[in-house]
Design a protein around this nucleic acid. Sequence first.
DNA 1: GATGAATGAGGGTTCATTCAT
DNA 2: CATGAATGAACCCTCATTCAT
Lengths: 218, 218, 218, 218
Amino acid sequence: MSVIDMSVTELIIPTDTLPAQPERETAADRARAATRSRLIESGKTLFAEHGLHQVTTHAIAFHAGVASGTFYNHFKDKSKLFCEITHAALSELSYRLDEVRDLGATHRERIQSQAEALVDFAAEHTEMIHILFSHEPAAAGLETDVLNQLAERILTERRAEIDTGEATDDLDPNILAQAMVGMWARVIAWWAEDPSRATRDQLVSTLTKIQLGGTHPA
Amino acid sequence: MSVIDMSVTELIIPTDTLPAQPERETAADRARAATRSRLIESGKTLFAEHGLHQVTTHAIAFHAGVASGTFYNHFKDKSKLFCEITHAALSELSYRLDEVRDLGATHRERIQSQAEALVDFAAEHTEMIHILFSHEPAAAGLETDVLNQLAERILTERRAEIDTGEATDDLDPNILAQAMVGMWARVIAWWAEDPSRATRDQLVSTLTKIQLGGTHPA
Amino acid sequence: MSVIDMSVTELIIPTDTLPAQPERETAADRARAATRSRLIESGKTLFAEHGLHQVTTHAIAFHAGVASGTFYNHFKDKSKLFCEITHAALSELSYRLDEVRDLGATHRERIQSQAEALVDFAAEHTEMIHILFSHEPAAAGLETDVLNQLAERILTERRAEIDTGEATDDLDPNILAQAMVGMWARVIAWWAEDPSRATRDQLVSTLTKIQLGGTHPA
Amino acid sequence: MSVIDMSVTELIIPTDTLPAQPERETAADRARAATRSRLIESGKTLFAEHGLHQVTTHAIAFHAGVASGTFYNHFKDKSKLFCEITHAALSELSYRLDEVRDLGATHRERIQSQAEALVDFAAEHTEMIHILFSHEPAAAGLETDVLNQLAERILTERRAEIDTGEATDDLDPNILAQAMVGMWARVIAWWAEDPSRATRDQLVSTLTKIQLGGTHPA
DNA sequence: GATGAATGAGGGTTCATTCAT
DNA sequence: CATGAATGAACCCTCATTCAT
């Protein structure tokens, strides 16, 4: 079970309440969780392929092998499922970026690790890329834009680096953060569409060089 | 105009008044053009604010002050209007980028002029930015993605520069083109949402530095 | 100018009012009549090919080379044009059937002449057949069904023949009239769809034999 | 039913109650079938009275006492309902004609039985007559014209009779088939409009005599 | 919880008809 | 009278959502 699924399942049903359920209920719980899981998987597949608007709740339910009404036993409405998928994907990506944040000693190493984490995530979750970077304003209602959240990360790191002198402040950090995030999203989405377009190393290397070259003193 | 109709017209109106005819048609033509124009303006406004799917043809017609059926006197369907708006905006932007292409003697000057053209276009056509960079696949059916067209521009220029030795080939030109275009779109869209977020000079300077720093030998 | 056109034109503008118009007006009148005539021709062509419902008033006007509004300068609405065309065609057919009514001395000759007139009319006005026998209830508003009018003719003749002893009364005249008219319409429409399906003589001979064989003593 | 769903179902419901399952589904199925049935009945009534084009899907749904969207839970579109009604009626009529095909020993008896079957069908399904013989090309897209199918029947039988010497070939079989079918349709439709116009026996007798008299040796 | 028939608001689009020019 | 842009009622159809079973 990946981190994504964990976030979806385990955030809803806190682990520490499970022991309170009698063993007999566990089968029903598992069935319910399985249905929910299948709906999420179907949502991922269909949203990735066709986008939020082109996918009907009926299609998701049908793809998941359940009745159309079942959808609403698990999600308040269509956009909620979309949000949940998006949220889970963003959590997974954030988790991976967090993991590598302090790995490298130098700034250069951190940038490169970040690029690697990003590309690897995309390679493992190709379909999530379309959803994450689909620019759907329909994820609205809950949180801010996915890209804004990523920009926020970059902005925070950049400011820290400026404070430590690792980075100069000749580039506006806000603009830079937006630029980096736009670059990431576009390159990764372009590549996810057809992974034969570039190798992992080309991607990592190019992203790293752009980010380093353009944003730091030689 | 058939022979019969000609006889009707030309017997009543002496031939020497015919040169004036274009003038006479202009009244009706102007009215038609005005309606069309209002529909386009309404489309720009509403599409920019809500996106293609959230805007109904009724809303556009109402906003333009005409009956709902009138929409279809001017556009075959909703997506045709969207395409037309997108196409016009892209043409305008392309024109401006073309204009500055050969202005600067050095590569640095060209990059900076390009950034200036981009930012100025955004400043003058704020609402077009949302439409151009909305990632709507619905403009499909006619042409490729707007961003892909811009990427194609960058790719072409980059290759030319590699040929002339102005640029090195240590960065994959395809990836670079996608990165630049993603960066542009994101930064410009972010800024257009709230122009107080940065000054024109900050934008131009930051975009220029990223592009130069990361993509050319020191 | 055929009888059809005459009926259309001359029934609207009584002949005896024409002399009252100054010569100068004749040109305008001719133009108006020509426009009207072209609309009728376009109506015939399009109705025959696609049926009343599939043809728009715009299509008729466009086909006639006039503006769409012009249609309503000549006809109150779409069904009025359809009625007028139908009416003219029926008049022409009735005229021809009248012409041959008293030609033959014997009953057999009359039946054969009638079949010949019918087939010849169809051959000369193929497109009218589709309109006449299209079973459109939309010709409503003015008159009874085309086929009913033809049935009425047959009924009248049949009754006369029974009175003179030329025909027996062992067949119900009403049913017979409907049967004959249904037979005519179907055979003629079937043939008009593809005139290579049968020769004129086959049609005449077959229709005559059915009508004679079944309805008269040997 | 997937493995997961099975576990849910079979753990709760002992296997030996499963044979009862078809019964359980019948409640919902019956409701669905009832709705579908009401829509079909409404369609028959309204199509018969006004024709395909004059009847809206809303009207059918309203007449059936369901919401307008419900129509599309049962039929892909309006013409599909029309086709289904037409098809069912034609099947029923064909079935009846088949039943009597080989009843009579003589040709005369067969013709008479056929006429009886036709008239009895019309008497029992008056409203279907308008639909079957409405000459709607909109049932198109699926099959050929209803009348053509009936003509095909007659043509086949006629040819068989010519082979066995029961019928002469002095009448073109194709034309004859069209004539008979046109006669049937017209007479039956005329009668169905107002059944007091003739008695069953008058119809049967007249149709039989026309068909026999005109198409066979004395 | 699962089901799936029913709902009905709403959207895109058509087209007969009007009327100011 | 011809024009043709404008009108707007009406239609077909979709689909997110509900709810009785």
